[in-house]
Design a protein around this nucleic acid. Structure first.
Length: 604
RNA sequence: GGGGACGUAGCUCAGUUGGUCAGAGCGCUGCCCUGUCACGGCAGAGGUCGCGGGUUCGAGCCCCGUCGUCCCCGCCA
């Protein structure tokens, strides 16, 4: 292929087929760069060798598909191109075939990425020709193959589950597909294979996995598409540690397939710890934790800093920010106030903002505490280049932060991320160093079982309603009288602040499952209506089981160094869930509507 | 549902205070060129300034609306 020939191939007769990347026309001598997914080779068409070939080369334009028949020749000294892997050779053409001509594309695959993503998506087939995109899909292929090989090697069976099915328990909006045969009835596309994989456990396939397409009709983000791919697995007779081990091994295999080394086992942290130290359930471990300074501050310090005795105080450090000018500090302060200032509730006040060396003695204790936290969590030293930020609520609003203990750490954690993002580009905070430390994996464990729904005044399942509660929290009775305190056997795997996947140990006893449905305010009838088949399955001999699902798109995105899933999905959708190439969604014909027993309230 | 950025030639973008402001580079087309590799030279074509309305003697520029793309919040594991 075009990218494979080397000096050792000199003298060989070859046929190269590919796209014209560039043409350099010297009159009676024409160079064509021929491109396929393996790379680019220079093809030389010399009139003195073949006048016919030269005529065809003159007619060739970028993106024509051609076949070049000729001999591989080592380039003469001084004519090599050290910038190309094939730069030591060229193919001297004896015959040229124009296999396909091409309109001038709206942008050239020979160029680097163009800015106009609308055009890229509309002409995706041209965009995908770009070596960068081809590289991404090679990575994607290698990653999925490595995962398949690893899991197969550990005794997992790959089993497919339906796409036309009924609502799954994740709680996002469903994509619905009308049934022609059953008037007024709809299939739902699965938000995950959750129920099926659990039933596969009931069926005795004790180790299942699937590269599964999932569908969720929610608004998009750079890291969220309406359809995405998960590596989904489930295991019978598991422990949490078993799931963690399996996951760590296949993630390691996936990263190695992409040429990256990572550290295992992953770090672990409980949900509570994550909220308290990072203010978020998916901490970016490349940044030092924040510190709760509330109990650290002496009365004298509080006096000096004018912080009332009872007020909580949080601090955090953004590393590598460097010296800030007075103006920069002022504008940063006002940015922080803007950040906090919208809701009225979160009227926090910034009391001190200094680089470390400017810490006056009175504030040293803050610095040293932040430093200790930093050392404890990141192995870094706290230096003068680090930016220390200390946050406390405004005076006179104590009831505000008492109703929800997580409220302040979450806000401060959000600011921490915001500032990190702000300084990241300037100070290369997240630049890869080519070491395993580029990838900070983390297990977040012991998620709460329930979360309170403020609007409906009910308790919802934080994960999904098949998640098993902690044994201890069943025994202690918390399950019945203190829902907010119940911990679930649910876990997330987080990489550099991005949620890669989540899973749980499931409920395998029908009585516990019914109790959970009840506690979620779901009546027996409702539970039967939605999941009756599943509850029944549980009654026919269910092994303890649990599993996890990781987003392959996100893994590949990180490995490809991309900022958006669209770079690693061949035919992705826009922020409004439109496929610009095929122009989907589209209006059905009247005939289709009739057959499907549908009427729409919208006029076309 | 809300907030922000962007929209001028195929692409990337410039366009000042409303008055030669319809421009550049790349690409494209034609001609020339036997050692280029982002080839080079000469010539040329190419515009509903996203769309609609308004203000004005006059709008790419100001106002209102609308559409599209991207980012974020809400939402979503």
């Amino acid at each position: 292929m075009c990218g494979e020939l080397r000096a050792s191939d000199a003298g060989k007769q070859v046929v190269l087929m590919g796209w014209v990347n560039r043409r350099r026309d010297h009159g009676d001598l024409i160079f064509l760069d021929l491109r396929d997914r393996s790379g680019i080779t220079q093809v030389v068409v010399d009139k003195s060798r073949s006048g016919e070939a030269l005529e065809k080369a003159e007619a060739a334009r970028p993106e024509y598909v051609i076949a070049a028949i000729g001999e591989v020749r080592a380039r003469e000294a001084g004519l090599e191109n050290p910038n190309m892997p094939t730069g030591d050779i060229e193919v001297v053409v004896s015959e040229l075939l124009l296999l396909s001509d091409a309109k001038t594309p709206p942008f050239s695959p020979a160029e680097d990425a163009i800015q106009n993503e609308e055009l890229r998506l509309q002409y995706r087939y041209v965009d995908l020709r770009r070596p960068e995109m081809q590289k991404n899909f090679v990575v994607r292929h290698k990653v999925t193959q490595a995962i398949r090989a690893q899991l197969s090697g550990e005794g997992f069976l790959e089993i497919e589950t339906p796409v036309l099915t009924r609502s799954t328990p994740e709680g996002a909006r469903d994509y619905l597909v009308p049934s022609r045969v059953h008037a007024g009835h709809f299939y739902a596309l699965p938000q995950s294979p959750q129920i099926f994989k659990q039933i596969l456990m009931v069926s005795g396939f004790d180790r299942y996995f699937q590269v599964a397409r999932c569908f969720r009709d929610e608004d998009l983000r750079a890291d969220r598409q309406p359809e995405f791919t998960q590596i989904d697995l489930e295991v019978s007779f598991p422990t949490q540690d078993m799931i963690f081990g399996i996951t760590e091994r296949f993630v390691k295999a996936a990263f190695e397939a992409a040429g990256e080394t990572i550290n295992t086992p992953f770090l672990r942290m409980t949900y509570d710890e994550a909220i308290n130290k990072y203010g978020i359930d998916k901490p970016d471990m490349r940044l030092p934790a924040m510190a709760n300074l509330t109990d650290v501050l002496t009365p004298e310090l509080r006096e000096t800093l004018k912080i009332e005795a009872a007020l909580p105080v949080y601090g955090f450090v953004i590393p590598g920010v460097g010296e800030l000018s007075g103006t920069a500090r002022k504008s940063l302060l006002s940015e922080i106030r803007t950040f906090f200032g919208d809701s009225g509730l979160d009227a926090l006040d910034l009391v001190r903002l200094r680089t470390a060396e400017q810490f006056v003695p009175l504030a040293e204790e803050i610095g040293s505490h932040l430093n200790a936290t930093t050392v404890a969590f990141n192995g870094n030293n706290f230096t003068a280049d680090d930016l220390a930020v200390v946050i406390t609520p405004k005076l006179g609003t104590p009831e505000m932060w008492n109703f929800d203990r997580q409220w302040i750490p979450k806000r401060v954690g959000a600011l921490r991320l915001e500032l990190a993002k702000k300084f990241a580009d300037k100070h290369q905070l997240f630049e890869k160093k080519g070491t395993p430390d580029d990838y900070k994996f983390l297990w977040v464990t012991d998620f709460p079982m329930y979360e309170f729904n403020e609007e409906k005044k009910t308790w919802d399942a934080a994960h999904h309603p098949f998640t098993a509660p902690h044994e201890d929290d069943i025994k202690s009775g918390a399950l019945y009288n203190d829902k907010g305190a119940v911990r679930a056997l649910a876990y997330d795997v987080v990489l550099n602040g991005l949620e890669l996947g989540s899973g749980s140990i499931r409920i395998h006893r029908k009585d516990v499952q019914s109790e959970i449905f009840r506690s979620l305010g779901m009546s027996d009838e409702e539970a039967r209506e939605r999941f009756g088949f599943f509850l029944e399955a549980l009654e026919y001999g269910t092994p303890p089981h649990g599993g996890i699902a990781l987003g392959i798109d996100r893994i590949v995105m990180l490995l490809a160094g991309a900022n958006s899933l669209r770079e690693v999905i061949a035919f992705p959708k826009t922020a409004k869930a439109i496929d610009l190439m095929v122009d989907a969604p589209s209006l059905p014909t009247e005939m289709q509507m009739r057959e499907l027993h549908l009427k729409t309230t919208v006029r076309s």
